[in-house]
Design a protein around this nucleic acid. Structure first.
Length: 310
RNA sequence: CCAUUGGGUC
């Protein structure tokens, strides 16, 4: 069973929900893990009705099942439903309370999130990270910093979220200090700093840091690509797009958007038509490309053709 | 073997 569970999980993470479903259905006696994994797969695909059906059919809903429901509905923006599951949860744990705090943050209710996290008798690493981050998002950098200084351990996420927080606050100097103080840097923190340099117009520093990243993932590549686009160098953006070893949908959307913002509607639309698959952002970008070039008619046609609208 | 935190696109 657990080998099949792994297979369902893998398909779910790749976005192949149909394959996940098929494998799940082939399991003779699904265990609690199987149900939860299938539930998560539905949530990841954005199909909440399917998730609800899995939930209703699950004979052994446990705390992880409930936590998944709360987190999933909150992420998709269905806050009422999320709250409904929260209120019906039979029990709580540190991790489920973390998820609930995160759900509060998704409805921009930082006060409740912080109150909950502060009241938690036990906090794990994630509780601390979320607490520090929640204060930063409220603009309470002094409080955030104070908590950061007092939390028991710092992991990569703690450091990186401080860098991001200070960048958001416009304090790039302090962001840089945090970056320098990190004992270990990974691709995420390096990419964060690449973006920070780029936003300050320090393209040379951004590129040098990017070149030094040993295991560049799609996010790192796309960050650098977008940096060039934002600095008006669509040519360099394109060469990065062509040079990257693996492109995901966000990379495609990014190059399409870079063209659109540069006023190259034809190129933007050509990318749009060439993409292996399209999501909501792809369509929005196509509409933007038309709008930027004052083609109201074309924009309207894209809008009408969108399979899904937000 | 499953849920909750940090970086990229509209």
């Amino acid at each position: 069973v657990f080998l099949l569970n792994l297979l369902v999980e893998m398909y779910g993470k790749c976005g192949s929900i149909d394959d996940a479903r098929q494998v799940f259905d082939s399991i003779r006696h699904p265990n609690a893990y199987s149900w939860n994994i299938m539930l998560t797969a539905c949530g990841r695909s954005g199909d909440l009705p399917a998730a609800k059906r899995v939930f209703d059919a699950n004979p052994e809903c446990g705390i992880i099942t409930w936590t998944t429901m709360v987190a999933m509905y909150a992420k998709e923006g269905y806050l009422e439903e999320s709250r409904g599951f929260f209120e019906r949860m039979p029990s709580w744990s540190v991790k489920s309370l973390n998820a609930i705090a995160q759900a509060y943050l998704q409805e921009s209710d930082h006060e409740h999130a912080i109150a909950l996290l502060e009241r938690m008798p036990e906090k794990d690493q994630i509780s601390w990270n979320v607490l520090v981050q929640a204060n930063a998002q409220l603009g309470h950098m002094d409080r955030s910093q104070w908590l950061f200084d007092r939390m028991p351990f710092w992991d990569l996420a703690s450091w990186t979220s401080m860098i991001t927080a200070y960048c958001t606050a416009g304090d790039y100097h302090t962001a840089r200090l945090f970056f320098d103080k990190m004992p270990v840097k990974d691709v995420v923190s390096l990419t964060t700093m690449v973006a920070a340099y780029a936003h300050n117009g320090h393209m040379f520093l951004a590129r040098r840091l990017f070149d030094g990243i040993s295991h560049k993932d799609a996010v790192a590549w796309t960050t650098m690509l977008v940096a060039y686009g934002e600095n008006g160098d669509v040519g360099k953006a394109l060469s990065l797009f062509q040079a990257m070893p693996r492109r995901d949908i966000t990379s495609w959307n990014a190059i399409s958007a870079a063209y659109a913002q540069a006023g190259h509607r034809e190129d933007s639309i050509r990318v749009f038509e060439t993409m292996p698959c399209r999501d909501l952002v792809s369509w929005n970008t196509a509409i933007l490309a038309c709008v930027e070039c004052h083609s109201a008619e074309e924009a309207k046609r894209c809008f009408d053709q969108m399979p899904r609208k937000n």
